[in-house]
Design a protein around this nucleic acid. Structure first.
Lengths: 112, 112
DNA sequence: ATGATATATTAAGGTATCATGATACAAGAA
DNA sequence: TTCTTGTATCATGATACCTTAATATATCAT
């Protein structure tokens, strides 16, 4: 039996944090976050900037929103997304700094 | 067609960072990292502390090692693991701080 | 109202990841 | 050597995740 998804009530702290990190574990989602760190964007702009499909972007934005990385507001027919917490910028910078000395290692990882 | 794993050469920066975050996206792996932040441990101690199987712990340690989170050294018949970069502690603290105001949101996330 | 554009949601299929169990490897003791 | 303990690897099966395509919803213009 593989990993069984827990019900919200039985999810403990560690699982919540793991889920939070999972938010940044997908290249498309991470790219979206990076782009939004440059400023508020609507979905079409994100589609353009990422090269992903509209459906993909919308779905990943939903994930990011659930995880608390982004918030959105409607403006006319557009929906504008932005980073909800400036500390996300620091988080990414820190991760990049840590990765810096290990990039080649991670690149070659075949275990996940 | 779902996600196709890229060859190391064609993996770009964003994918490397995503992979790095993926390292912390599994509860068992994250727990191991948290435990190791308390000090060097051997595999058996980690099995004991996490409640996971030996196989599971070894496998996840391999992932964490590839990602550069931990390093290991042999000492007699034991293999001791430790956090390879103290900044990982900061990374976790920062993540927890960001999550703090969004825990309930993340807990209920059904999109991933 | 209808049509056009922007975004969200859903279902289906394929791939990646994970847990399990078995097995292999390594080091020390007898 | 064999036995024991500690650790790593591998194959299998099950679940989770991602992508795609279709469809639904929303807003604005006509």
């Amino acid at each position: 039996m593989a990993q069984l998804k827990l019900q919200p009530e039985e999810m403990v702290q560690t699982e919540i944090y793991a889920k939070f990190f999972h938010g940044l574990s997908n290249p498309t989602r991470l790219r979206i976050v990076e782009i939004l760190l440059d400023g508020e964007k609507n979905v079409s702009q994100l589609v353009e900037a990422t090269g992903a499909t509209q459906s993909q972007v919308s779905n990943q934005l939903a994930c990011l929103k659930w995880c608390g990385y982004v918030t959105s507001r409607q403006e006319g027919k557009y929906v504008l997304y932005r980073i909800s917490d400036e500390r996300v910028r620091t988080l990414l910078q820190l991760a990049k700094a840590i990765v810096a000395d290990n990039a080649e290692h991670i690149r070659c990882c075949t275990r996940m």
